[in-house]
Design a protein around this nucleic acid. Sequence first.
DNA 1: GCCGATTAGTTGATCTGTCAATTAAATCCC
DNA 2: GGGATTTAATTGACAGATCAACTAATCGGC
Lengths: 152, 152
Amino acid sequence: MNQPNWLDPDELRAWRTFVEATQLLFDRLDRQLQQDSGLSHADYELLIRLSEAADQRMRMSELAEQTLFSRSRLSHAIARIEQAGWVRREGCPSDKRGTFAVLTPEGRQVLEAAAPGHVAAVRHHLFDQLTPVQRRQLQQIANRIREQLGHP
Amino acid sequence: MNQPNWLDPDELRAWRTFVEATQLLFDRLDRQLQQDSGLSHADYELLIRLSEAADQRMRMSELAEQTLFSRSRLSHAIARIEQAGWVRREGCPSDKRGTFAVLTPEGRQVLEAAAPGHVAAVRHHLFDQLTPVQRRQLQQIANRIREQLGHP
DNA sequence: GCCGATTAGTTGATCTGTCAATTAAATCCC
DNA sequence: GGGATTTAATTGACAGATCAACTAATCGGC
C-alpha cells in the first residue's frame, strides 16, 4: 500500500459504472416502492423476511443478520413499523432477553399490496435487461464478492 | 402487473446475492474510509471529482450530476466539508446564480492521504476477486443497467 | 451456586439525507 | 423591454441511520 497501485483506466471505468448503476437501480426501486406503497426498501425487506419465516415471526437478532441491519437500526426500524401496525413484538419465553418480531395481518396486507409492483420493477430494471448468461455471470460475481466479505 | 410475474428461484437467489454483495461491499469500503481517513464515501466522491476538474473547481449543478447527488443533498454536504476546510465556495461571475465548489489545498491533502487506502480496498474486495473476464462482464452488465435507467 | 464475560435488545444524541418551499438570476418571447 | 417561466442553489423541518452507552438475562468456569 506504499506506492499506490492505482486502478487502470478500464478498472476505473468499470468501478464507476458499477457504482453508478447500483446507485441508480436502488434509488429507482426505492422510489417506486415509496410512491406506490409508502414503504421504504428497508421496510419491505423486513416485512418480506418476516413473511417467509415460520409462524410469521423471527428473533430480532436473526432478522438483523438476514437483512444486514445493525441491531440498533433494527430496533428503531421495528419501532416505527410497529407504530404503523405492521408488526408487533413478543417476548421469547425460553430466553427472556429475546424478542420476536411478528408480522401482523395488516403488515401482510401491506406487503402483499407492495410486492407485485416491486417485483415487476426489479424484473424490468434488472432481469429484463440481462441475457440468461449475464444473469448467471452476475450471480457468480456477486457471490464471489459476498463470500470474500465473510458471508459464506 | 396484474397476476404478478414472480421471480423464479434462480432469479430470487441472484437478486438477493446481488443486493447482499453490494451492501456488504459498500459498507466495508465506507467503514475503511471512515476509520482510516475520517471521510465518508460521499465526501470522498465529492473531493475526487473536484480534484479531477479543471482548476480544482466545479459548478454545484455539474458536481451534483456527476455524483448523482440531489442539489439539496449537495448543498448540505458541501456546507459540511466547507466547514471542515476542504472546499470553499466561489460565485460564478458569468452567471450570478451559480456557485463553484473549489477544492482547497487542505482538501487535496486529505484526499491524497485517503486515496491509496481506498483504492487498495476496492482492489482487494472487488477486482482481486474477479477474473479479467468477469471484470468485463461486470462492466457490461452495469453499463446495461445504467443505460436503461437513463444515463447514456 | 456465583461472579465475570458475553449476548439480546433498547435508547438517546447526533449526523446525514429528503422533501417542499424559497430566493434570486437568467431566459423566453411577443 | 418587461412579465411569465425556467434554472441554480440554499434553507429548514423532518425522517432515517449511526454510534456509544445502557439494561437485563444467560453462559462458562471453577
